[in-house]
Design a protein around this nucleic acid. Structure first.
Length: 275
DNA sequence: CATCAGGCGAGAC
DNA sequence: GTCTCGCCTGAT
């Protein structure tokens, strides 16, 4: 067990911010996650976070995965105090962090995410993992499925993927998995590139358009200047930033602010629906 | 029953 | 380059 203290970490907000589809709440203050082929449980009481793993695993994996060395309070402090919408959004989602997730997993996950809702995206991904991922048992004896390898998905037919509930995205997954598995698209070279170049490359993948490419850049390659625009963000931009979002001011932190806005809008919607 | 979900590709112009 | 259209599926 590794316990750390951080005021800008909320396991709940990370679950709900929609960047990670394989982390969820499993108890009052408990959360679980499958990432990097491993299963992790987290308990959080206010700013005290306990990771149920060895110190070595924390240092080598989760410390990076959860972006623990980045000072999110400083980023929030850089927000224009006269921008009351952004101030409120950041205050509300101050425990969100931009995760360092697996590139291949994010490519497939965000292809699935298009024209889809978060609940069903999660279901689709679990379906794929159960059918094509390796079954594993954690140190504590919990059974889980790792995310499928490129080989496993490349060997699935379009019909198989259709049967898994991927719908019209089946052909995208099929072709993208194959072009990656057969080395026609090289994942290795992407990380070193700048945001613009990485995005341009990702757009070559069948089923990856501008929004999905930005999500991959932000959540896997950690290009925090990527600013994914979905239907919700577009609505907010229109309502709150009719003259444009101040990208020049926020530069490489724009993507982090996008997550605060996305989560804030999501929460506001829930609140409105519960009246 | 229509509309909408964290869009995208294809084709028309 | 910009616009329109069709698309799996489940929830509301």
């Amino acid at each position: 067990m590794v316990t750390v203290q951080n005021e800008n970490f909320s396991a709940l907000q990370i679950c709900m911010s929609g960047q990670c589809f394989r982390m969820d709440r499993c108890g009052e203050n408990k959360y679980r996650l499958v990432a990097a082929g491993k299963y992790l449980e987290i308990t959080q009481q206010e700013d005290k976070i306990s990771f149920d793993c060895t110190q070595e695993e924390y240092d080598n994996l989760w410390n990076v995965y959860f972006d623990m060395e980045t000072d999110y309070a400083r980023i929030i402090a850089s927000i224009d105090r006269e921008d009351s919408y952004l101030m409120a959004a950041a205050a509300h989602g101050k425990g969100i962090r931009i995760l360092h997730q697996d590139l291949w997993e994010m490519i497939i996950s965000f292809i699935i995410s298009q024209q889809n809702n978060i609940k069903r995206i999660r279901k689709c991904i679990e379906q794929l993992c159960e059918r094509y991922g390796e079954k594993k048992i954690s140190d504590k004896g919990v059974a889980y499925f790792a995310f499928p390898t490129p080989k496993a998905l490349a060997n699935a037919s379009v019909d198989d993927l259709y049967a898994c509930g991927m719908g019209y995205r089946s052909k995208y997954i099929y072709q993208t998995a194959n072009s990656i598995y057969h080395g026609e698209f090289d994942l290795e070279k992407l990380g070193a590139k700048e945001y613009d170049a990485a995005k341009r490359d990702l757009l070559q993948l069948y089923g990856v358009g501008g929004k999905v490419a930005d999500c991959i850049c932000l959540f896997a390659l950690h290009k925090t200047d990527a600013f994914p625009r979905d239907t919700h963000i577009n609505k907010v931009m229109k309502a709150q930033y009719p003259n444009g979002f101040p990208f020049e001011r926020y530069g490489e932190n724009s993507g982090i602010l996008q997550q605060y806005i996305f989560y804030y809008d999501l929460e506001n919607k829930k609140y409105r629906n519960n009246i």
